[in-house]
Nucleic acid binder design. Sequence first.
DNA 1: AAACCTTGATAAAACGATTTAGCCAATATT
DNA 2: AATATTGGCTAAATCGTTTTATCAAGGTTT
Lengths: 339, 339
Amino acid sequence: MMPKKRIRQVDIADKLNVSVGLVSLVLSGKSHEFRISDEMAAKVIETAKALGYRPNQLARGLRTGKSGIIGLLVADISNPFFGKMARCIENEAAKLEYQVMFGSSDENSEKLENLINTFSSRQVDGMIIVPVFDSERILLSLQEQSIPFVFVDRYCEGVDEDAVVVDNYLGSYELTSLLIKKGYRKIAALAHNLGLSNIKERIQGYTTALKESPLDYPVEEFIFEVDFDQVDTRLEAVLKRAHKDGCDAFFFANNKLGISSLKYFDKIGLSIKDDIGIVSFDNPEAFQVTKPGITCLEQPIDLMCEKAIQLLSRKIEGRVKTKPERISLPGNLIIRESC
Amino acid sequence: MMPKKRIRQVDIADKLNVSVGLVSLVLSGKSHEFRISDEMAAKVIETAKALGYRPNQLARGLRTGKSGIIGLLVADISNPFFGKMARCIENEAAKLEYQVMFGSSDENSEKLENLINTFSSRQVDGMIIVPVFDSERILLSLQEQSIPFVFVDRYCEGVDEDAVVVDNYLGSYELTSLLIKKGYRKIAALAHNLGLSNIKERIQGYTTALKESPLDYPVEEFIFEVDFDQVDTRLEAVLKRAHKDGCDAFFFANNKLGISSLKYFDKIGLSIKDDIGIVSFDNPEAFQVTKPGITCLEQPIDLMCEKAIQLLSRKIEGRVKTKPERISLPGNLIIRESC
DNA sequence: AAACCTTGATAAAACGATTTAGCCAATATT
DNA sequence: AATATTGGCTAAATCGTTTTATCAAGGTTT
């Protein structure tokens, strides 16, 4: 069986005894603009279809300088939060005829750097980036390469670019206030990296809510940082420790920590709602099916992605814009039975 | 501030007063093969680094005929099962210096066709495909284009290509047998599309286990098909109906149905384990944190992806191979408290 | 009849790499 | 001394498009 060669514009041109240029003009819809006769145009389109022509986007991209690809850089595509994000970005990008290429940084700035560099090498037209800790340098260098990008979920302090995030401060403030209102007396906060912009804001909201409350204890002593790769080794101990120190409620700064902790509470034998109160950022399915359901702050991922692609595409198309925007969208407080 | 032009090989060549060809040879590591002097090679590499050269993969791809991109076509990247898959494919692909571009078909053959066509247009070197119902035609046409691809999770009956799947039959057989052993008398099965190869096998395993058991009722009458887009409208009624008809246990053919049903059982007021027994395919986090935990069959996603990329890469590299393989890997039965 | 449009096409130069054929010294071989 | 070999490089074709400049032929205008 023959390997069957791909059909190129020149094949169409040869068949019709015309030039490649003409074929190109017709196929890219410039017939009228370049006064190609309607009959000729029709013939070209017809044989293109008949031969099963598909444009070679590599060649087209090389010539036009646009690859039609958007790079999506998340911490981990297998995290349902980023999975949802990927899906929303995919949908929005598709509307503008972009394809999405993704990469997971694992919250590691070196990996992020590698990904950014390969994506740049692949001539992506723009990137949607979830920046990680300590990635300022590479992001500044990306700026210098003048490849358009926007931040989502978090931003990088030293890098002045568009960003779309949930209102982290308000969300945490609401979650924490709820715990306080319910009568919990000592609330621990857990986060995986206190250096990230979104986490900082979340801790800020948490702290402020407590400071404004009648509760009076050294809040800072009950903010715990448990890195992702320490979940298996340290999380259980931290939870036990906090409980032993009198914490009767927990604020989780993201879904991973919330979910993992659920397992440990069960193991330790602490009953949620009866023994301890719980609130968390994000709204993964696990929070919806577990009993009691977990009170949480759902992020408007679809809206965030819509905005992000809007910002990105106008950058790509070079539509001017005075200053980078930092868009903050309200989260959705979902009250369940965990507190 | 200047737009700062990208550095090309010719810029390096000009700076050193040599030809582009030489620069290319050096940078692609062919110095020795083409007897470029070590000092020259060193100079090229040095200035490449100094100027911050990054190869243009579009140009390279156009010339070499390899884009370095693998297309991943799943049903929905936001489904944690496919999210995990994406992550594993990403990791395996990275080892071979491939980037991954993804697309979600939503179990829709038209969408799949569009995605396959755009991916083909983008010159992906190969694709990992989760085929959907009624996609035989487009897949055969892909075969004719001689673009390498392998199936994962399911295969398409009429298309003879490599496939990597979990042992669906055995997994379902084990899950169902467990329910039978626990003493449940009437077990309903729910699936979202009985036409898919993996679902067929799962139903086969379920049916066989029942037929081999002392239980004696018309099994076929308790196999329910609830499409993804009918979950909100029909699932609750189906569950109620089955329970009213005497079903005391449920077999779910995938995570989506299992998770959604959990919510409805809660709503209907049926207590899992006390009132009904439950088993499901897949092992999403929701099954791990809910109480009681859901007994399920975990798929070896990492292994499946490893195999899939192996098969794909050997196809891409044209390494001969007698016949397409259909690899079936054993699942991992996880026994929890839901039955 | 010369000058001018108009219409409908073509030819050729890009885009940035890879890759092959070949050139010219200098050295080695017979 | 003539020829072959080797080392080190260059020139040019090529990948499949897009895009601009150009051209031929016919129709209008003076």
